[in-house]
């Protein structure tokens, strides 16, 4: 339990730092909601990798499989990352958008996870980013009361594919590197 708590706390801290640092970088495209979303690397990481508590690491590494994880871990990290990140950056109004996008992405990746291998985590990155943007656009439609904001969707899909491939690949390389290292240690 303590290990898991520390693990979640460390991942949340990393996600918050990435989120805050990314908020300092000016967005080159003046379209609301379009950004790299580097903190999503941590959410993806949490969905695809957890330190084996009950299961021996040796056994998991030998099987060369992704350890099964709970979406609850990723949701916990997402929730605290959004809460702490928005408090630190002073953008409380963005809470609804961040949470809606995050939950949409989480559910989509959780489902997509069943259809990909460990060398296709980048696919989940893309799917997550697209659904993150869809979630945000739906909330924007509700908040502004203007359904025709949906016209932003094609731009959001393009942005989602590009940014999702980058963040997904980052998560994939990190996970594969850690698993590779564990295999060597064993």
């Amino acid at each position: 339990m303590t290990i898991k708590l520390v693990y979640l706390a460390v991942l949340t801290a990393i996600a918050v730092i990435i989120y805050v640092v990314e908020s300092w970088i000016p967005i080159p495209i003046p379209i609301p909601g379009v950004k790299l979303g580097l903190a999503n690397v941590i959410t993806l990481f949490a969905l695809f990798y957890t330190p084996a508590e009950k299961q021996p690491i040796k056994q998991t590494a030998k099987k060369n499989q992704l350890t099964p994880t709970l979406g609850a871990d990723a949701f916990t990290i997402l929730l605290f990352r959004v809460l702490i990140g928005l408090t630190l950056t002073g953008r409380a109004t963005a809470f609804l958008f961040s949470m809606a996008g995050g939950i949409f992405a989480l559910v989509a990746v959780f489902i997509a996870k069943r259809f990909v291998t460990q060398k296709q985590i980048w696919v989940c990155g893309v799917i997550g980013a697209i659904f993150h943007n869809i979630g945000q656009i739906l909330i924007a439609m509700l908040v502004t009361g203007t359904p025709w904001i949906i016209t932003y969707l094609p731009i959001f899909i393009i942005a989602g594919i590009i940014t999702g491939a980058i963040t997904g690949m980052a998560a994939q390389l990190t996970i594969l590197r850690i698993m590779e290292k564990k295999s060597v240690e064993i």
Binding site: P30, I31, T146
Partner: peptide, 19 residues
């Protein structure tokens, strides 16, 4: 971001200030 969208005179995509 809404300010950075600049002057517009057309397009299906609207100018939006979400906050």
């Amino acid at each position: 971001l809404c300010k950075r969208q600049g002057w517009r005179n057309s397009g299906v995509i609207p100018i939006v200030c979400l906050p």
